[in-house]
Amino acid sequence: MDNLSTPLSKVKGLGSAKEGTGHFWHQRLTTLILIPLVLWFAFSIASMPIDHATLTTWIRQPTVAIALILLILATFYHAQLGIQIVIEDYVSTHSTRTVSIILVNFLCLLFAIIGVVAVLKISFGS
């Protein structure tokens, strides 16, 4: 017997990180959703004057707010997954690596929340 995995762990296929191909798969799913959102965002911002009045009027449109929130969530999830891989590849000291990954997770979560709250405040604010 050269494989010590239990039949249950083999059939679950989640490996030692307990998430299987989840990381890889979520990176790809966020890529797919970011393709249209990123093009829309870049060309929308480029094609309008970004003074305060124009920008907030634009964000107050419900469809824009929805797309922006989706963009913010997908961006920071994608960034968190990607930067984690970079850290895992180049930071070899175990403690530094773990602390960096936790820090990146928190930062991405924090900025995603700041972004969503900002969009909602502009949308519902007077």
């Binding site: 995603a112 700041i114 972004g115 900002a118």
Partner: peptide, 12 residues
């Protein structure tokens, strides 16, 4: 993206 969110927060 963090800088852009910061600017968005400033606008809000």
């Amino acid at each position: 993206a963090m800088v852009l969110v910061w600017i968005l927060a400033a606008a809000a």
